[in-house]
Design a protein around this nucleic acid. Sequence first.
DNA 1: CTAGTTTTTGTTACCGATAACAATATCCCT
DNA 2: AGGGATATTGTTATCGGTAACAAAAACTAG
Lengths: 340, 340
Amino acid sequence: MPKIKTPTMSDVARLTGFSSMTVSRALRADTSTSDETRLKILDAADKLGYVLDGTAAGLSSRKTGFVAVIIPSINNANFAFTVRGLTEGLRNSGLQVLLGYTDYKMDEEERLVKTLLTRRPEALVITGGVHTERCRQYLYSSGVPIVEMWDSPPSPIDHVVGFSNARAGRIMARHLYDQGYRKIGFIGGDTDSDIRGADRRRGFVETISDFGLGTDRLWQSDQPVLTMAGGAKAMHELLDQYPDTDAVMCASDLSAFGAMMTCQKRGLTIPDDIAIAGFGAYDISANALPEITTIDVGARGIGTQVAEVIKSSLADKTHSKDPANIDIPTRLIVRKSTAG
Amino acid sequence: MPKIKTPTMSDVARLTGFSSMTVSRALRADTSTSDETRLKILDAADKLGYVLDGTAAGLSSRKTGFVAVIIPSINNANFAFTVRGLTEGLRNSGLQVLLGYTDYKMDEEERLVKTLLTRRPEALVITGGVHTERCRQYLYSSGVPIVEMWDSPPSPIDHVVGFSNARAGRIMARHLYDQGYRKIGFIGGDTDSDIRGADRRRGFVETISDFGLGTDRLWQSDQPVLTMAGGAKAMHELLDQYPDTDAVMCASDLSAFGAMMTCQKRGLTIPDDIAIAGFGAYDISANALPEITTIDVGARGIGTQVAEVIKSSLADKTHSKDPANIDIPTRLIVRKSTAG
DNA sequence: CTAGTTTTTGTTACCGATAACAATATCCCT
DNA sequence: AGGGATATTGTTATCGGTAACAAAAACTAG
């Protein structure tokens, strides 16, 4: 590694004979120089291996080009798709995603918000609508547009692009009921960490309760159950206690798959002996055997919409518009695993 | 959103009566002030809702605290684990991961390297050892430590934390041979985008060729085949052409799972009629029925090691040490899907 | 050809922090 | 008590760009 000092704009300026201001202009798209000088400058910059210092540019222009994005987990296809949608939606605006993940921990989220605000993002996107008080405080006083996504918070901080997770639970409960199932269980974690999973559970329980069905087949844990192994284990326990369960909704397709494997290991046929439903329209639900009924919220589309909200919010100099509140439709995908 | 100007260090300084230099010192761990003033300053900063401007701090100290990390896909559990290991390994050093993904495209990688260098990272981590010429140029002249990971490049740019993908292919080929399979196929993409998958294929082909087996059962595509659906489709085509195939290695556990589903749909029993092996030790391989034989490279551990390499490289002021070249062991996990 | 307009380039003053050095204040020991 | 060492705080310059304004050059039209 040669430890040569990185060239700066002044170096390019010196080489071309222009002032560094002209160099700055030549390197940016929205500013004007004559074509001739621009070419000369680009050429010299290339020759020197000049790379713009975004740190300095951001400090000076008060525009860092960062959009901070906070998701619960980086190892989750749904959030990954949202980030993709976001990244691509922002690319043409020259905005770059600065990603952080919380591991489904609220205090980690708070820490992360603080760290990310340090980078002076032009907007901040956060997953869910429940945060620590101090975290809300940081967000409120950040002075940049905030987007809460993947949820439908009762009192949003600013913009929202999400959906009601409770509604998703209700939709699935109704579907299972419509298919004729009456001994329906749920597998999912508790309230403190996977808040959205817990909301789905709540909607689910409300609905089967409305239908007059028992709500005792609710498996739960103090950890989020969003993994295959977690779903598999939970299903064992549920079946041990309630062997006659005829349908189960899981908080995620991954746990649904695990649960289905458990059933198959125990010699149960899906859906004849027991129906399984998931959430999230992960790859696995479309490729498992049998295919698993799920709910699609268009994870990528959420990202795309968030990008639009951010762009329009940043373009709106007057701050006249009301915060956006976009409701993403939740689409039930009926597959063989619940073919009553 | 109240559009109040964000407070700066001078504001904190004014409020406390100290100079902004003292404020700066009080806010950092490695610098000294008296306990009394530090408390006063922290208190005032809290009251004002002051958040450090990392942009300015980075410009001034020439240390941004960023580590740029480039992975092929954000929607991949293996790379996600590596990023986790990396993030956690760097956390206590105050370094933050700035993540980008290439979608397995070399020109996108080049673009990304340039964009990320703009942010003046203190180190840059990149997946794989094959890059465009211009990209190598950027990396060489960046002046920061570079780590290539997940591969074992013949001529490394700087540090390496990886393994030989060809070796992984060889290990699996030998395993299948040892289990008694003789009509062995491979499902995977081509060289241009999933380079590491192609390397595994190469090692695989070499080995079965050494064993005197035919190398005609090689399914391939001009796209990387790393998805369940891709594996499922490929397996159909492979079986149509070579119905007597008795074992298949796939470039990824995901395609292996898809392939296995295809076999089951066609009435084939795993492993009695046909064996299936994957790569990557994804969750699915441990939870599928039957469980899928795979190769684990300890994705998280790669991240941890990369973090160590970076930390020691940044600590080494004299640049006396040679670049690290860490070989990650590839561990074969034998499961039921190849229980000959 | 000249005044007015537009285009292109330059000058100066920051953006918000920290490094490096300087100046006090405090401490400790003989 | 005095002098050197140490701890604490302040001053100044600077990091590498860009905004805002100013000036020079090129163009336009009457």
